[in-house]
Design a protein around this nucleic acid. Structure first.
Length: 724
DNA sequence: CCCGCGTTCCTTTTT
DNA sequence: GGAACGCGGG
């Protein structure tokens, strides 16, 4: 069996997982242990060797990227298409289920998906209309509450509470749901919840899918929330074979409802399950793995796993103590230049940070050094304002009752429908439990609006209706082109000046060509091309816009680095209060999640890992003196190499708020330099942060390890260079 | 309706 | 430090 082509290149554990019999299985896959490979080979094995039809396999992932990569790799392995196999995200699959059974779940056939931005706007408007104080009841918080409840499988009517705060939130939830239902709108959490209710309450439907999906495979299982796991349970019935793949040590989304406990729950629910640990790592050097193992060992309640490699130790992890965030950035730039000069590619370098705000200083330094970079986590194509405007028009063409869409564009571009008029429409809609469109139409017909407002509303209604009527046999591309010009959106953005407006016009044109190039998936034949496109826009917000072909340094948060790997990785801002973040430090559970995040970050590195921290950091315009992160002390000392500033050839020439390079030299005649480690007879060791004036009378700022930051006069302080 | 000013808030992100 | 938002004046 070891010579079977689907298994020959695999290690023993991988091969066992791939060729396992029909029984539930947990694959605990450590970072870099070939997890995707196992999943892909397993599916291919089931089809080729065990003669399962692709039709009887369901594979679930969290991102569209993972789903399409998996399908591609399975097809490549089999040399044939697996079109009728269901591979997709939880949300994509739920959408498909709801479409197929829209009548059973009480949705209109052309129901639309609300993204989080739409959702927040809708909630906000409802809070206003309920006459609640928006300061006391922030839309964000209410949205968080609603989604949290939905993720737990709870409808508003299931919530019993005597807490007055929660009672209000519950009312908002109720009003929101009513509003969505009336408008035929489904948010992301609702997709899952409603699909779950469908499977739970409709025996025929449930048994149909249970009969169909003999094998169910779930990727990144540690990221599943309650409703997602409940979903899997319902689909798997009595004798379907569930395979889950995940890593409890890489669970970093607890804050958004993911439950690592689901892994343990799975083992309880499927007692016959076999557990396979993939611990051989094919990515990182021995040193990096040793340090990562040592950090994660500080967490409790692990399922237990130790990564190992057959590769070499590699070089030690570099640790750099910067004196502030600009020095940190400068050091990193120096190391990247060194890497490039030795022939390294920039796209092989990743800069990781805990929060997005930290990227700015790094960007400035990269810009300054003329190093191209690409930053992850910006606005994506379908999330842009102008695109969402255009999509709102398209949504109205498809479904007039879409309140979220009408709110967005009824007066964009301005057409004389002001707040006054809008409020009348809203009120009428609320009182008569109708959609905004219906209310507006009625008000116009019954001549209940003042002349000017009435004309404006009437012509808006006319605009949507005629656009719909006259484009009936248009292609999607032509339709979208028609929409952006007839609505006046294009003209509006063309009239604006500035670079921003120009990009918006370009984006609108880009939208037209996206529509032209859009090909409907064959699983979407039940949808009109327009509805298929709209679903596509909501469910996969599109790639971030960046020139992928350019050789550029990659900047991203630690969270978005999960699943990726880079030859050279910088983990920056590794300080108490930054990483682990301040908000996570008090609660043990959250601290452990931060530690897993550290583990994730470290295991992204293939050859070189550089960890940096700053003695002083400016956050929100305030200076902080953080201690080194505890995670660093959790690494074995012999896996680390501390880089000291004195050993650097490059002088700290500041280009920011600090003293400039010219006066540095004068300062350095005192015998000290910024970032230098010094020793004081009374205060102990510390780091030079800043100075004032030159010569012996100058004052010098030092962050002492024990007693914090102090200003001292050089002449009296009797400082010595520290030996450590 | 637009502009400018003051206020507030501030991890992490996918769908 | 700065984006995002609400409010009041023109």
């Amino acid at each position: 069996m070891s010579t079977h082509p689907l298994i020959s290149g695999l290690n023993e554990k991988q091969a066992t997982a791939v060729s396992a019999d029909d029984r539930p299985m947990l694959v605990l896959a450590g970072a870099g242990s070939g997890k995707t490979r196992v999943l892909v080979h397993r599916i291919a094995w089931l089809i080729q060797e065990r003669r399962y039809s692709p039709y009887s396999i369901l594979a679930v992932t969290f991102t569209n990227k993972a789903a399409s990569e998996m399908r591609g790799r399975v097809e490549q392995l089999l040399g044939s298409s697996v079109r009728n196999m269901w591979i997709g995200t939880f949300h994509g699959l739920a959408h498909r289920l709801l479409r197929a059974h829209y009548m059973d779940v009480g949705l209109p056939q052309n129901f639309q998906i609300l993204d989080s931005d739409d959702q927040q706007r809708l909630v906000k408007r409802l809070i206003k209309s309920m006459n609640l104080d928006e300061k006391r009841w922030p839309a964000k918080q209410a949205q968080w509450y609603i989604n949290g409840k939905k993720d737990e499988g709870l409808r508003a009517q299931h919530i019993e509470t005597f807490d007055p705060t929660e009672q209000t939130l519950k009312q908002i939830y109720e009003a929101y749901q009513e509003s969505c239902d009336r408008a035929g709108l489904v948010d992301f959490a609702e997709l899952l919840l409603r699909a779950h209710e469908l499977l739970r309450d409709n025996k025929t439907v449930r048994e149909h899918y249970q009969k169909r999906f003999r094998h169910i495979l779930v990727d990144e299982f540690q990221d599943t929330n309650s409703i997602q796991y409940a979903w899997i349970r319902l689909l798997s019935g009595q004798d379907n074979i569930v395979t889950i793949v995940g890593d409890d040590d890489q669970s970093i989304y607890g804050w958004r409802g993911a439950r690592v406990e689901n892994i343990q729950q799975f083992l309880d629910d499927y007692p016959a399950a076999m557990t396979i640990r993939l611990e051989q790592n094919y990515r990182s050097t021995g040193n990096i793995l040793r340090a990562a193992n040592s950090v994660i060992a500080n967490n409790s309640d692990r399922l237990g796993k130790d990564l190992w490699t057959e590769g070499n130790e590699g070089e030690p992890i570099s640790l750099y103590a910067a004196f502030n965030e600009m020095d940190e950035a400068r050091y990193i730039v120096g190391r990247i230049e060194e890497w490039r000069d030795q022939g390294g590619a920039l796209q092989d370098v990743a800069l990781l940070y805990r929060s997005n705000a930290q990227s700015r200083v790094l960007e400035e330094a990269l810009l300054h050094a003329r190093l191209p970079y690409r930053i992850y986590g910006g606005l994506r194509f379908f999330e842009r304002q102008e695109i969402k405007d255009a999509l709102a028009y398209l949504r109205l063409v498809s479904n007039r009752d879409d309140d979220a869409a009408i709110e967005r564009v009824i007066n964009t571009p301005t057409r004389g429908i002001g707040n006054r008029t809008l409020d009348i429409i809203r009120q009428t809609a609320r009182e008569q439990k109708k959609s905004l469109w219906q209310a507006a139409t009625q008000l116009v017909d019954e001549k209940q609006l003042a002349g000017r407002a009435r004309n404006a509303v009437a012509s808006f209604i006319e605009l949507i209706n005629t656009t719909d009527d006259e484009t009936e046999d248009f292609t999607l591309g032509r339709l979208s082109n028609e929409v952006i010009s007839r609505s006046g959106l294009l003209a509006m953005y063309e009239a604006e000046k500035g670079e921003k407006a120009e990009t918006r016009v370009e984006n609108l044109k880009e939208l037209v060509s996206a529509c032209e190039n859009f090909t409907q998936d064959e699983t979407e034949e039940d949808l009109t091309p327009l509805n298929a496109f709209l679903a596509h826009a909501a469910l996969e917000a599109g790639e971030e816009q960046a020139d992928e072909y350019q050789d550029a340094v990659q900047l991203m948060t630690l969270h978005s680095a999960k699943g990726l790997e880079f030859p050279m990785v910088f983990m920056t801002g590794v300080e108490e209060g930054v990483f682990p973040s301040q908000q996570s430090m008090d609660e043990p559970g959250r601290l452990e999640e931060e530690r897993r995040l550290c583990y994730v970050g470290m295991t992204r590195a293939m050859q070189k890992l550089v960890i940096t921290y700053a003695e002083q950091r400016r956050i929100y315009g305030q200076d902080f003196f953080h201690k080194v992160s505890r995670f660093i002390s959790e690494m074995p000392a012999d896996a680390l190499h501390e880089v000291r500033l004195q050993t650097q050839v490059q002088k700290p020439t500041s280009y920011g708020r600090f003293n400039t390079g010219a006066s540095h030299e004068a300062f350095e005649q005192t015998g000290f330099s910024l970032g230098q480690r010094v020793r004081h007879a009374k205060f102990g060791d510390g780091t030079v942060l800043n100075y004032e004036g030159t010569g012996p009378q100058s004052r010098i700022q030092i962050n002492f390890d024990q007693v914090g930051t102090k200003w001292l006069v050089v002449a009296y302080a009797k400082l010595e260079p520290s030996v450590s």
